[in-house]
Amino acid sequence: MTEYTAHFIPCKVRYNGATEEFVDNFHCDNEDDLTLKRKEDDSLNGEKLCVRHIRGRKIVGKKFLGSDGYQTFLVKTGTREGEDGETGQISLDTTSKIEPIAKISSMINYERDGNEERLLEELEKFQQFLDVSDVIHS
């Protein structure tokens, strides 16, 4: 099964499908420490994050769920069965199989440059979720 890296980016891209533009774009910026920036903007105290660019915006990301016994998959789930008009609640066709489409070898969560605090908060909360999940399932 093909392995992929999943990137959680802080914007909404109104497109689903393939693209060849990743060949020339979205590369990891390994020279980010040379960026012109104010000293006070280095809120991460020098912590090295994954830096990429989308349309002039810098996004900074951190890996999660990369190891510790977890395996991550992109899955195809059941089709939408019904939708509550008031709440927007969707019920799935639970009788259909969950089908793995691809293996995710690495996941990176991003926030905008300047919003690193939220990135760390999110990852902290997610870690709490994993800890609780571990307790429940152990």
Binding site: L36, K37, D41, H53, R57, D113, N115
Partner: peptide
């Protein structure tokens, strides 16, 4: 030489209060 990348990323930081 301030590059287009540095000009754009500075001006497009978020939240807007963090703009450079």
């Amino acid at each position: 030489c301030i590059t287009p990348v540095d000009i754009s990323t500075g001006m497009l930081r978020y939240p807007p209060s963090k703009n450079y």
